[in-house]
């Protein structure tokens, strides 16, 4: 039997103003799989990610690691599913980096004396110095902030990691660093992104979303090199694949 990290069947979600953000979404993700969700802005990618840990709840139940996502087990599910938000300023809300990274583990009930070790481990995993802990997030560069946000999520030791546009606004060096970092992680990964180069480097499977629906689901290389499919959904075949298909 295959183990599923995420099972979503016929999920519908409308925003309070009536906009249908998700329509009949079916998505199964196996444990350890790396899945990219690509599609134009406003396709519902971020909305779908917010369903993974019950921040938003749609019409039908979602299964996370064989648990039905319900009110009663929200805390348990949130300890398994980490979400990296697009804007680190939304994610880093504490006065210092240390407090921000400690926030998740403390909520999970990790004893106070184990917290510094957890924080330092997460910082190390994200290639950050221990000394950054005492600084305020607003004194950091965007690249650092993004990595601190990731450290804040990893400190909770999630089994599933959802990321929303992890490479947006990063310069090439920081982008490359993030790709290396994410490739090393041993988690089930689900990434909403426009950065198709990132998808090629990191993900094996790609899902195309547009106007709240899933239009294609399969091998990343095959989907991303399908010129017609890509252009139909406001995307573009990434450069490395274009070079291969050139006559």
């Amino acid at each position: 039997m295959t183990e599923y990290a995420i099972r979503i069947t016929r999920l519908n979600y409308s925003y309070p103003d009536g906009t249908r953000a998700l329509q009949e979404i079916d998505l199964d993700v196996r444990t350890g799989e790396r899945v990219a969700i690509v599609g134009p802005s406003g396709a519902g990618k971020s909305t779908l990610l917010l369903h993974l840990n019950g921040v938003l709840t749609g019409s039908s139940p979602i299964k996370i690691a064989n648990l039905n996502l319900e009110r009663s087990n929200l805390q348990q599910i949130r300890s398994k599913v980490g979400l990296l938000f697009q804007d680190p300023n939304d994610q880093l809300f504490c006065p210092t980096v240390f407090e921000d990274i400690a926030f998740g583990p403390l909520n999970l009930g990790v004893p106070a004396e184990e917290i510094p070790a957890r924080v330092n481990k997460a910082l190390r995993e994200c290639g950050l110095e221990q000394s950054i802990g005492s600084r305020s997030s607003h004194h950091l560069s965007l690249g650092e902030r993004r990595r601190v946000s990731l450290a804040a999520v990893l400190a909770m030791e999630p089994a599933i990691l959802g990321m929303d546009e992890p490479t947006s606004n990063l310069d090439p060096r920081n982008r490359k660093r993030l790709i290396e970092l994410v490739s090393r992680l041993e988690v089930t990964l689900i990434v909403a992104t426009h950065d198709l180069g990132f998808v090629l480097d990191v993900c094996s499977r790609t899902v195309v979303m547009d106007r709240g629906k899933i239009w294609a689901d399969g091998d990343a290389q095959t989907i991303l090199s399908d010129t017609r499919l890509m252009e139909e959904h406001g995307l573009e075949v990434p450069l490395p694949l274009k070079a291969e298909t050139r006559p």
Binding site: L83, F103, M156
Partner: peptide, 24 residues
């Protein structure tokens, strides 16, 4: 809107009304 996103981020990291800190 930022406040709403922040709240989502807090919930995602297990916030349930209590805001614990460690003070060394």
């Amino acid at each position: 809107e930022r406040a709403e996103r922040m709240h989502s981020a807090m919930l995602s990291r297990g916030y349930s009304g209590d805001f614990p800190v460690v003070a060394p």
